[in-house]
Design a protein around this nucleic acid. Structure first.
Lengths: 152, 152
DNA sequence: TATTGTTATACTCTATAACTATA
DNA sequence: TATAGTTATAGAGTATAACAATA
């Protein structure tokens, strides 16, 4: 999104401003660029950070579980894990209960990087969402959680 | 997102579940597929619908204003308007005050389609967000609006 | 017969740079 | 000198199908 400087448009009070899907898309776009910018210092993007953070928390998920949780295709998880593994941040372990499945675990370096990256992500989020109070952010998170996980 | 059936993962209570950016991304992903599915009956996607809806509301935006509001690159707006124009839904008019600029206006057919598509989008949204009450949806919209338009 | 991980491929989306005509 | 629209292109991201190993 390069060459788009400021220009007050008469669109702010338009039909879409009431559209939850549109607001979601626009807020997500802003949050995505802020997140990627903050994580680039660690060689990560929101995508790869999400995988690393989940794995580093010790959940020992299979690639299949990562795909479902992050709403990615299993084939996309392959390349994300490939990348993290080539950098020594995660490892694939055979699941003793199902020899088809790979369980993904973080290395010590992976856990350390996840910790540092998480700091950066939190700071960036706080800056990006500075117009909301902590209480507002919590209630926003609660509402979004119910939209993001409708089965719960 | 094809081959990902159900599988209860132990990831629901993970680090990311508190992450506003992650929740935003996941909720947006769900809302996007629901929106695209609902609009496909009218030959539209959320992208092209957004342009059509803004133009049909009578705002007479320039392509430049559309790009800024929808957070698209101006070059992407070119192809969106090309497509809508080739289907007789919108027209480009020279801006008398700036001969560089195109003002985009909807045809009668465009306004009619926008109206019908809006119905479908509303129904789909109501279905997709059924786990929230109307009051909750309104407060979610208000919070998202402040995140989506931080300059206001 | 179905599922996990994988590979391959095509398609959409996004980002970037350069050109033109105007300002 | 800068801006609106356009074109072209390359890179991400996404969707789909097929295969081997295993269940």
């Amino acid at each position: 999104m390069p060459s788009v400087p400021a220009a007050a448009s008469g669109l702010r009070a338009s039909v879409l401003t009431d559209d939850l899907s549109f607001l979601l898309a626009r807020a997500n776009a802003l949050s995505l660029v802020a997140g990627n910018a903050a994580l680039s210092a660690h060689g990560l993007k929101v995508r790869s950070y999400s995988v690393l953070a989940l794995v580093a928390s010790g959940s020992r998920p299979s690639q299949r579980e990562l795909a479902e949780f992050l709403r990615l295709d299993p084939s996309q998880v392959v390349s994300l894990v490939d990348d993290l593994q080539s950098r020594g941040l995660v490892e694939r372990r055979a699941d003793p209960r199902d020899r088809r499945a790979n369980v993904v675990v973080a290395t010590a370096a992976g856990r350390a990087l996840a910790e540092r990256a998480r700091e950066s992500a939190r700071e960036a989020e706080a800056r990006a969402h500075a117009q909301l109070t902590a209480a507002e952010r919590e209630s926003l998170a609660a509402l979004l959680r119910r939209m993001a996980f409708p089965d719960d």
